[in-house]
C-alpha cells in the first residue's frame, strides 16, 4: 500500500499528494506516469508524476477532480493510503539542449509539465513557460513556474488574473514578434494541444504532446490506449505518452476518449450523491490490504525474521 504523507490544495478542485512509493521514486524519469486504484471495486487511472524524492522514497502527483476516481482521490487526506500505485510507466521525455523551448500547459497540465521543464532547463535550454487556466482560481503552481523558467507567462481565459487570453495567443504573439523557438512541449486538454500543433506545424517547429488516452493495465497488454500516430497504431502506455504532435491524429484521440462518456457520467453522478459511502469503502479496502500484508509472513516459514 502507498501511504499519503501530505496534501496541498493547489486550486479549486486540484490537489497535490505526496505519497510513499520508494520503488517508483528510485526509477522515475521526467515524463513518466503511474496508474493507481483506490479500492477493491475501483478503476485504474493514469496520472503523471509531478516530482519524486528518492531519498525520502516519495512521489508527488497532482489531481484535478474530473471523474469519479479523481473526485474520490481528492477527498483523501494524510494518513489515508492508496491501495495500488504502479509505475513509473511510459517512456521518459526526450531531454537535450534544443536552444529555446516553449512549454505550454493548461491548468493541471502545468504540474505534469514541471519535471520535464526542470530537466530541459538543466540541459541548458532557454525556457519559456506558458500556463493557461480558465479562471484565477484554477491557476496552479505559479511560484514553481516562475522559479524554473526564464520567461514565465500566465494567462486566464477570462482575464480574472494577470494576462487575458489563450496559451495559443501568447505562443502566436511570441512567434509573430520574431522569437525563435526550437522545441515545444504541450500538455493539457486535447483542443489546446491540437491548436498548438496546428500553429507549430506550419512553422516547422518540432512539437511534442503528452497524450491522455484511456488505459487499463499500462504495460502494453490490453491495447486500449492505442492512438493513431503517423497512421500507425501506437500504445500511449508503452510507446508514449509523448508523441510528435504533427503525427498525432487528434480526431481519433477525441473519439476514443469519448468511448465511455455515458458510463463515466453515471459513475460520477452516483458518487456525488453519496461520496461518504465510497470514501468508507476506500478506507476499508486499505485496512483489509494491510491485514493481508501482515498475515503474509508465516511464523517459522523460510523467510520468518
Amino acid at each position: 500500500m502507498f501511504k499519503i504523507l501530505s496534501t496541498r490544495q493547489l486550486a479549486t478542485g486540484i490537489k497535490q499528494f505526496v505519497i510513499e512509493a520508494p520503488r517508483i521514486s528510485h526509477k522515475y524519469q521526467p515524463g513518466q506516469f503511474v496508474i493507481l486504484r483506490l479500492y477493491d471495486r475501483g478503476e485504474r487511472i493514469p496520472l503523471t508524476i509531478k516530482a519524486v524524492d528518492p531519498q525520502a522514497g516519495t512521489i508527488t502527483i497532482c489531481v484535478q477532480s474530473v471523474g469519479k476516481t479523481t473526485h474520490l482521490l481528492n477527498l483523501l487526506e494524510p494518513g489515508d493510503s492508496l491501495l495500488d500505485v504502479v509505475g513509473p510507466l511510459g517512456k521518459p521525455s526526450e531531454i537535450k539542449n534544443f536552444g529555446t523551448v516553449a512549454i505550454i500547459a493548461g491548468s493541471v497540465g502545468t504540474a505534469m509539465a514541471i519535471p520535464t521543464t526542470k530537466a530541459l532547463k538543466q540541459a541548458g535550454n532557454h525556457v519559456i513557460f506558458i500556463e493557461g487556466a480558465r479562471r484565477q482560481d484554477l491557476v496552479v503552481l505559479e511560484d514553481e513556474i516562475r522559479a524554473i523558467s526564464d520567461e514565465p507567462y500566465i494567462l486566464t481565459d477570462d482575464g480574472s488574473y494577470l494576462e487575458k487570453g489563450l496559451v495559443t495567443h501568447k505562443l502566436l504573439q511570441l512567434l509573430d514578434s520574431g522569437r525563435k523557438i526550437d522545441f515545444v512541449l504541450a500538455v493539457g486538454p486535447i483542443p489546446m494541444m491540437r491548436a498548438v500543433a496546428d500553429i507549430t506545424k506550419t512553422r516547422g517547429i518540432r512539437t511534442v504532446v503528452s497524450l491522455n488516452s484511456i488505459m487499463v493495465d499500462g504495460t502494453g497488454m490490453c491495447g486500449g490506449c492505442r492512438v493513431l500516430v503517423g497512421n500507425h497504431s501506437q500504445f500511449a502506455c508503452v510507446d508514449g505518452p509523448e508523441f510528435e504532435a504533427d503525427q498525432v491524429n487528434f480526431d481519433v484521440l477525441v473519439q476514443r476518449n469519448s468511448m465511455y462518456r455515458d458510463a463515466e457520467h453515471k459513475s460520477l453522478d452516483d458518487f456525488l450523491a453519496n461520496p461518504e459511502r465510497e470514501l468508507a469503502l476506500v478506507r476499508e479496502s486499505c485496512k483489509l490490504r494491510e491485514l493481508e500484508e501482515h498475515a503474509a509472513v508465516v511464523p517459522g516459514g523460510p523467510h520468518a525474521k
Binding site: 471495486r41 475501483g42 485504474r44 476516481t69 490490453c222 486500449g224 481519433v252 458510463a263
Partner: peptide, 28 residues
C-alpha cells in the same frame, strides 16, 4: 481505431480483472 473495436485482451481484462460486467457496482 473505431469505438467498438477491442483487443480480446482489453475486453477480457475489463471484464475479468476489473469486473466491468458488474458496472456500476464496479467502476471500470
Amino acid at each position: 481505431h473505431l469505438n467498438g473495436v477491442y483487443s480480446a485482451n482489453e475486453f477480457l481484462t475489463r471484464n475479468n480483472l476489473m469486473r466491468a460486467y458488474r458496472f456500476p457496482e464496479f467502476d471500470e
